[in-house]
């Protein structure tokens, strides 16, 4: 914009040929007036920042979910979207259907490809009102974007909408998909917005790497984005047991059985002593 404006003024001054000085002065003034706020704004929007209070969530024995505060600064006049997501992957689910007209039973599998295991969107306003549909699809913001980017097999194409809605219901029920509007606190100081929100991190979210992205939106477009990762990892006994279950199943099985047998006998003996009269 800056370049266009200065070119225009130069062309104008060449064409007219006289009162050049006046025009140059006017052009300069107008440039200052029109461009300087833009320059300032550019500088401010470059300051879209993102801070996460802990980027490493440790799942220990007493883990019951966590809270993550997400904060940063953004340009005045932008709307914000915070997206938390795990990498896209594949999910196989069993589907229920009616058999013989009255009985609900599992009637096969549906495969959802290219869907995130975890997906959470927090925005200052309703995302449908602030963002163009094309932008939503491009950045994977909103459930409709997820649906478009996904691939569903095991059903006919005409049932796609219905089963994706069921998929959302399933995911929301498991606390793995969620949205919130207006939960981001905004404060403004010298043309810069500060945002802050506390996201409750559900214990159902599996270990793995999560991406937290903040998008600054203006006039229906994403004008800037910033990204951080959060690592969710099992530690201590939880990690030892999970690894053992996966890597040495036989030993893990034997230990589980021996402890169960021991506990059964142990309690039996305690009761025999306690209730000796029987």
């Amino acid at each position: 914009m800056k370049i266009v404006r200065s070119r225009e003024s130069v062309v104008m001054s060449q064409k007219t040929g006289y009162r050049i000085r006046t025009l140059i002065v006017l052009a300069l003034i107008s440039m200052l007036y029109t461009v300087s706020p833009l320059l300032f704004a550019d500088k401010a929007s470059a300051e879209l920042t993102l801070d996460i209070n802990h980027s490493h969530i440790k799942i220990d024995f007493l883990y019951h979910g966590s809270e993550v505060s997400v904060k940063g600064t953004a340009d005045r006049g932008t709307d914000l979207i915070i997206k938390i997501t795990s990498p896209n992957g594949h999910e196989s689910l069993r589907k229920k259907g009616k058999i013989a007209g009255i009985l609900w039973m599992n009637v096969g599998q549906i495969n959802f490809e290219n869907v995130p295991g975890f997906y959470s969107i927090h925005s200052t306003k309703d995302i449908k009102k602030m963002l163009d549909p094309a932008e939503m699809d491009k950045y994977g913001i909103g459930y409709s974007a997820l649906e478009k980017n996904s691939e569903i097999t095991g059903i006919s194409e005409s049932d796609r909408k219905k089963w994706f809605a069921e998929f959302l219901k399933y995911k929301k029920g498991a606390k793995l998909y969620s949205t919130s509007v207006g939960m981001i606190e905004i404060s403004e100081k010298e043309g810069i917005l500060s945002y802050y929100t506390k996201v409750s991190w559900p214990y159902q979210a599996k270990p793995g790497e999560y991406k937290v992205t903040v998008y600054a939106v203006k006039d229906g477009k994403v004008i800037e984005q910033s990204e951080k990762t959060v690592l969710v990892e099992q530690v201590g006994i939880v990690k030892t047991l999970a690894d053992m279950a996966k890597q040495s199943g036989a030993l893990y099985g034997i230990i589980s059985i021996v402890i169960a047998l021991g506990a059964g006998f142990g309690v039996g003996i305690i009761f025999r002593k306690g209730g000796g009269s029987h």
């Binding site: 229920k96 009255i102 609900w104």
Partner: peptide, 14 residues
């Protein structure tokens, strides 16, 4: 009952 009532979720883990 399980067989005849409409389930709240039509999808479940495989």
């Amino acid at each position: 009952f399980e067989l005849t009532l409409t389930p709240s979720l039509l999808l479940s883990q495989a």
